[in-house]
Design a protein around this nucleic acid. Sequence first.
DNA 1: GGAGGATTACCATTGAGCGGGAATCCTGAG
DNA 2: CTCAGGATTCCCGCTCAATGGTAATCCTCC
Lengths: 261, 261
Amino acid sequence: MANSASGESIIGRFVKIVSAFDDRHTSMSVAELGRRTGLPVTTTYRLVNDLLLERLLEREPGGDIHIGTRMWELVSRGSKMLGLREAALPFMEDVQAVVQHSTTLGILDSDEVLYIERLGSDKTIVDITKIAGRLPVHATSSGLVLLAHSPAAYQDSFLARPLTKFTETTLTDPALLRRHLAEIRQRGFAAMPGVIVPESSGIAVPVFGPDNTVRAALSVVVPRNEENAAARVPVLLAAARGISRALGWRGELKGTLRQSH
Amino acid sequence: MANSASGESIIGRFVKIVSAFDDRHTSMSVAELGRRTGLPVTTTYRLVNDLLLERLLEREPGGDIHIGTRMWELVSRGSKMLGLREAALPFMEDVQAVVQHSTTLGILDSDEVLYIERLGSDKTIVDITKIAGRLPVHATSSGLVLLAHSPAAYQDSFLARPLTKFTETTLTDPALLRRHLAEIRQRGFAAMPGVIVPESSGIAVPVFGPDNTVRAALSVVVPRNEENAAARVPVLLAAARGISRALGWRGELKGTLRQSH
DNA sequence: GGAGGATTACCATTGAGCGGGAATCCTGAG
DNA sequence: CTCAGGATTCCCGCTCAATGGTAATCCTCC
């Protein structure tokens, strides 16, 4: 599928190049980029030049490369994420204002939770969510909410594989998890104390789309020792309904709970 | 530079494909994509398949294509926009809360203003800014602020070209504009009534980076008939300083105004 | 001045990309 | 049910853009 000796397409290499950048490495020299991607030196330079021409990458004064403005623009403008984000943001602001802890919006992607938006970086508690960052499904409240409202077939396949135990409270037993998911569906929220980092607990509720399937999970991260974290739930539920409605959801149809199991 | 008869590289075609999507067209059939991009049918299908394999594009149940989650993720994670946005967001929320009109953050890119973030979609007034959307520099308060604090050489080249007159108040005369830019630098803000749409006016202030150059413009859009729009300025200035500081700016060095003209 | 790395230049080789054409699948109208 | 028009997939020979090694050049900091 490619001219390359290694059998990669240009697209594949493009992905490698873009993947080399992350929040800790927003810019680097071409040589370093070559090292990080593992691409042949010459090839890296040629490819980078092509990308510079299209402004998908940009060269900064020092010579280092970073992801181009144009790239951000094109992707942002055409992506469906923007719609979701814009629908959610006003409600998230309300939640954040009331709860005073960081509020996140996550979706399910490639068997992980991908965080789309996050408000209020609260230094006082441990919160490892990042925008465009990923966390495992079974070890986050958002993930469990998303999983709980996924098609049964997906749940089965997910629960079939081995799950990492991050802390004492991380659930890894399929049967136990399955019961937990049922509870989450019934109660309408997930409250998980310290399933990924011991010091904080997450509370999450589902956000629905027009077809009444889950689109995202809205959640807050609070200190684990908080008195009654459950008191946070109503605010979240109300906000989630607001977001759902903004997405075109029109109230719960009969059989909302039927979609899973 | 390409195998194609038309002499385009794959990268170029990739750009064409991604560009075919925007906020009004977040998904479409492959055939339509082919039409919009002008690429040969077969080529479109092959290319789309490659992109689907890498998850840069995604196929929805109906068969339509949209920009992939992975694409958004990679670009967002690696892009410097996120840093700017995250630094600005808290302050923008404050501004939005106080001013009660839509608040935007824009940067200068390819001789246009590119809006990075926008809070509060206020239906009561006309505001055509969109996230990842562009507007002309000389017809927006943000644009004029950015231009006013750009290197003199850039200003000269910009003012050398013909400028479109959008409304009665749009400034298009180079000499007049130049004087206006000086005022903006001196006063520290731009207040432009109806320069792009007659009904609303924008107020913008500069945001600085560590090297004391402009990074972005923070602005609000208010109804044009508002009593004293200038009263909004202090809030904006304060917020802009906050953002600048979050970006690593350390107070104004002597010679702040010297950088331009 | 010179060692070590980053960047550019050169160039022979070749298979990935190309795209026209035709077959097949879909879908909605009559 | 049939049929038309469009979307999608298959097929396939041609060809030149992409490849990546080697070597020269440019930096930059001891």
